[in-house]
């Protein structure tokens, strides 16, 4: 799986890039927030060192997330998240590889905001699942800002809630993605 991801990264950035270099948008500071609300506690964490790349000619969209970079308000939650839930030492990365539907309808040459649907595969905790989510793509002065908010079930990714806290911790997590990408010029 890891090599497939690397190959797709390279494809997005080299093959497409060689002919349509001006069509690549990247950031290393995309922001991903997750939030879960349950009777026992609200859990919120933010990661602002997320790699994101968009090939505007094909609609290919890639995110790469280091799980250890999620920051929690409470140290204990951060420990449990890394050690007991997502098992960061064993599964250090999460990735999304997908495509924006109808990328050709987006005019990257002028400011505008578009509702989009993104289809792809989300890999987390060693499990890959297809997802299809709504979002927006906004072109602002040459930058591309991608936003999306969606919910995932942690059980889908084989993340187990310890029996002692079943019912007290939400089994669904809201993910908010914000990526402000700049045109990549080599």
């Amino acid at each position: 799986m890891k090599y497939r991801i690397i190959v797709i990264f390279i494809l997005v950035f080299t093959v497409a890039g060689s002919t349509m270099q001006a069509q690549k948008y990247i950031t290393k500071n995309a922001n991903i927030r997750f939030y879960s609300d349950a009777p026992a506690e609200k859990i919120e964490a933010i990661n602002n060192q997320v790699n994101c790349a968009l090939d505007a000619s094909t609609g290919d969209l890639v995110f790469k997330v280091l799980m250890q970079s999620f920051q929690f308000e409470k140290a204990l939650m951060q420990e449990h998240f890394n050690e007991n839930y997502v098992e960061s030492p064993k599964f250090p990365n999460a990735t999304f590889m997908g495509k924006i539907e109808g990328i050709n309808t987006i005019d990257f040459s002028k400011n505008g905001k578009y509702d989009v649907v993104v289809n792809g595969n989300l890999t987390m905790h060693g499990v890959t699942k297809p997802i299809s989510e709504k979002g927006t793509v906004e072109v602002v002065d040459g930058k591309v800002i991608a936003n999306s908010k969606f919910t995932i079930a942690i059980a889908d990714y084989d993340i187990k809630v310890p029996s002692a806290v079943v019912g007290k911790i939400s089994e669904k997590v809201e993910i908010t993605v914000n990526a402000s990408m700049e045109k990549y010029v080599k």
């Binding site: 690397i6 060192q49 790699n51 790469k64």
Partner: peptide, 13 residues
């Protein structure tokens, strides 16, 4: 604190 490597950069927090 080392968070890992994302195939482009080593990330520290």
């Amino acid at each position: 604190l080392c968070a890992g490597y994302n195939d482009t950069d080593v990330i520290l927090e």
